[in-house]
Amino acid sequence: MFTAGFKFFFKLFVVLITAAIVYGYTSGGNHVGPLSVGWKGGVGDHTGYGILLALATVSLVISLALIAFRDADAEAQAELLNVDRIPIPPQRAVKASWWPTVSAFGIGTTVIGLVLHPAIFVLGLATVGLVVVEWTMDAWADRVTGDTKANRMLRNRIMAPIEIPVLGALAVGIVVLAASRILLTVSALGAVLATSVIAVIILAYASVYVAWPELARKFIPELAILACFVLLVGGVLAAIKGEREFHHPESSSDSTLYETDTDDASETHNPIDGNIDENHSGISDTSSVES
């Protein structure tokens, strides 16, 4: 009559509710406080009492659910489906999907963005939102009919016009934002070197792709995952280190034409150096004449 699952959780409930009451009284409760959830009297330590009470409630609810479901035994579920014997779920009923992994990356981005920058946070949330939509549609399409091909077609008919532009924009956004944080953290020379190396890698990969397309295609996911990890770790490190120091020009609109964080920059303001100054004044003179 009483199922094993019900008995386990109900005993858990009895133990926990007893523990809550005993704990309530022994930690300073009075009157009937621990018996009436603090209605009449104190319950002692509120934290422990409250948590024990919550655990007891949950145990009771689970035990009641399990007895209602008859422990979700195969026989009970078969009866619910009006079949003699419950079908064991097919081995490959659920096809492989990228979305769980992308969702984890989305949550990771949200977490980093919460600390690092609101834009990254929003980007992470957008990724999670995207995953919710895609995952839901995939799950729906998997079960819409018994024909796998038809399911695929139905899904693509609804989703392809939306997902291709959105995914493209999102991928570019993630790369640009995360990479910019890293580049703002490393030194100016380091940033130049890093971008050069990345450019060379992309060029090399493109060359390999042209020469051996099959081989290159095989490594696309591997490289994508590796890049995501590098960006995530780089993002965390960039958050911790912060941006490098930038030297901004103090005044004069002309000076903004030149980088001021190098020694050469100071030379542009040197009145002794006639050529450079002349060029400057020449430009401004011309513009003033034209105006």
Partner: peptide, 16 residues
Amino acid sequence: RAALGAFWCWLIGATI
């Protein structure tokens, strides 16, 4: 799929 999500969530959380 939730199991796979759990694995990656764990891995990325642990990395952070």
